[in-house]
């Protein structure tokens, strides 16, 4: 690319050159500062005991064991609800409706809006609908259901792309063989679309783990080990928020929890982009 654009000596070109490199350097430096600060302060506190012990003295000492359990339970509820709905919707949009049909267009537009809804509004909705109207109270179940609404657009979009990446010849051959569309879906399209589905799943998990605002008024603050899905449970991100804002002297443990959260997210994002570049490509070409 760079070769097709000739170099020049005039001052405007130099100014632009400096600005472009300058902004890239600024962004990189900020990123390194942020990550470096968290790793530098957090690394010395993270240990096996920190990951498994219960928090003591409002989180100033002790670990994050019950919080990790609550976080995974919330995530589990979220995925158990959003996966079937998400995959079903994606299959319908990609395989069973034409792009022009009214139903398809309305669903797509509503998902576009849903993707833009601020997380605090999801929190308000979850509080009003799941906690109050359905009577679930502040519980892991309410939090997980709220998050399920939140990750649906992401999940549906990548799954749909996975299905669209499957060559049309698969469907035509299956139709020529007289296979039912259910069989085609289960035995041909679904396996071929798995990489797209996984990308959606991983991105959805990332979004769910990162979420704070939607959970404050749905899953609550309680940092004990949850005994059932109807107990209130504190997610990791809420723990960080609480330690840094409401607990004086909680900074050391807040740094360590932040580091744990960031490492989880980096791993998740790494997996997603690895799947997107290699998984999708390989599957579709060689199946």
């Amino acid at each position: 690319m760079a070769e097709t654009l000739s170099r020049s000596q005039n001052p405007r070109e130099w100014l632009a050159f400096a600005l472009v490199w300058g902004s890239a350097a600024l962004v990189t430096a900020t990123f390194c500062w942020l990550l470096g600060d968290i790793v530098w302060h957090g690394l010395s506190h993270v240990s096996w005991t920190f990951l498994t012990a219960p928090p003591e003295n409002a989180g100033r000492r002790g670990g994050i064991g019950p919080i990790l359990v609550s976080t995974s339970l919330i995530l589990g509820v979220c995925l158990a609800v959003s996966l079937p709905i998400g995959i079903g919707t994606a299959v319908l949009l990609a395989e069973f409706t034409s792009d022009q049909s009214l139903f398809g267009r309305m669903t797509r537009r509503s998902l576009d809006v849903l993707a833009g809804v601020p997380s605090i509004v999801f929190g308000l909705f979850g509080n009003a609908f799941f906690c109050k109207t359905l009577g679930l109270g502040f519980s892991i179940l309410s939090g997980g259901l709220t998050l399920a609404c939140m990750v649906l657009p992401i999940l549906i979009r990548s799954t749909e792309e996975g299905f669209r990446a499957v060559p049309a010849s698969y469907r035509l051959s299956a139709a020529a063989l007289g296979l039912s569309r259910t069989t085609t879906l289960v035995h041909l399209l679904l396996p071929a679309a798995v990489p797209g589905l996984l990308v959606g799943l991983v991105l959805g998990v990332g979004r769910a783990i990162a979420e704070t605002a939607a959970l404050i008024f749905t899953s609550g603050y309680v940092d004990r080990m949850p005994e059932s899905l109807l107990d209130s449970g504190r997610a990791l991100s809420i723990h960080i928020f609480d330690l840094s804002m409401n607990v004086s002297g909680g900074d050391a443990n807040a740094y360590a929890s932040t580091l744990v959260l960031v490492i989880m997210l980096l791993a998740i994002n790494g997996t997603a982009s690895w799947l997107a570049t290699y998984g999708l490509h390989r599957k579709v070409v060689t199946v």
Binding site: G88, T89, M106
Partner: peptide, 26 residues
């Protein structure tokens, strides 16, 4: 196939109405 199609429409309807639910509850 008929059954599958209705199940899928059901899930898509749920996904599509969440926005409406949010607005209504707000």
């Amino acid at each position: 196939d008929e059954l599958l199609c209705w199940v899928l429409r059901g899930t898509a309807t749920i996904a599509g109405t969440i926005v409406l639910l949010i607005v209504v509850f707000l």
